[in-house]
């Protein structure tokens, strides 16, 4: 009982994650706390039993006999089969509830259909948050479309409406963002730890990734799939700004009609 309460307390007070800066990050952290509590209870329990056994049942000097001949205990074995089975089933279903709330369970074709900047007939592979219903229709805002190109060893961001090319990703806080991602050469992965999202960018598979940033700030974008010698240096920044600042940034960077290609 102490163990369970202790585990829950640890789970509630664990602080092992960076700041949560997107709509699904807080949902994610909820899952993390649950997993951490269950894990802590289990680990501390087994640690306790193991250490207790090693101390209590160690061979003391002068003891020559064997231990007790216990070959099994059916009720006990059924108990420790059923409990983990129940726990993993609970964890699995719970994590799918979480996943659903992040928008991961929407069918892939749905996201292709919803996405207005998509070329008809093109195959789209979605990751987490790939359904526009999660981000788009709830807030009533259209997602900001941005095209992402991953190549050795950089991410390029293209704002199709304003025709802006940028090396940093600027997004408005509180508005859904829809990234259409493509890789030029090898597999890369787009990861923003503060958003708790990651999506492989695979050549030949245009991928859509939707998310809603919540907290203004500058967060790292990290390539998380080995992509060559400079893989470790393939980093960028996502700048989450207040919507007004974002609009200013857009206007400031919109190219004059006559500019270099």
């Amino acid at each position: 009982m102490v163990l369970v309460l202790g585990g829950l307390w640890i789970g509630q007070n664990v602080n092992l994650l960076p700041v949560d800066a997107s709509a699904n990050a807080s949902v994610y952290d909820e899952l993390f706390r649950v997993l951490f509590s269950i894990g802590a209870i289990l680990f501390l329990g087994i640690l306790g039993v193991l250490v207790f056994s090693l101390i209590q049942f160690r061979r003391r000097s002068g003891q020559l006999g064997d231990g007790l001949a216990i070959e099994g205990n059916l009720p006990l074995e059924i108990f420790w089969t059923a409990v983990p089975a129940f726990v993993v089933l609970f964890v699995g279903l719970y994590s799918f509830d979480i996943y659903d709330r992040m928008g991961g369970m929407a069918p892939l074709s749905h996201s292709a259909h919803d996405h207005h900047s998509m070329v008809a007939g093109e195959e789209v592979w979605g990751g987490i948050g790939s359904s526009s219903s999660q981000s788009g229709s709830e807030t009533g805002l259209l997602p900001v479309p941005i095209e992402v190109t991953a190549m050795q060893f950089a991410f390029l961001f293209h704002y199709p409406k304003e025709d802006i090319m940028a090396g940093e990703l600027h997004v408005p806080a509180g508005r859904p963002v829809s990234l259409k991602m493509e890789a030029k050469d090898v597999i890369h992965a787009f990861w923003v730890p503060e958003f708790r999202i990651k999506q492989d960018v695979i050549p030949g598979q245009p991928t859509v990734l939707n998310f809603t940033p919540t907290k203004p700030g500058r967060y790292p974008i990290v390539c998380a799939e080995l992509c060559g010698p400079y893989h470790g240096g393939m980093r960028s920044t996502v700048v989450v700004e207040d919507p007004e600042d974002f609009d200013t940034w857009l206007t400031n960077n919109t190219k004059a009609p006559v500019s270099e290609a």
């Binding site: 039993v49 056994s53 090693l54 049942f57 003891q63 216990i70 006990l76 089969t81």
Partner: peptide
């Protein structure tokens, strides 16, 4: 689940033994 069974069984093997450390 099956992995857990094995670990609980090992702990039960330790329990009540004469363990040489």
């Amino acid at each position: 689940v099956p992995t857990g069974i094995k670990f609980f069984n090992w702990l039960a093997t330790l329990w009540g033994g004469r363990i040489t450390l």
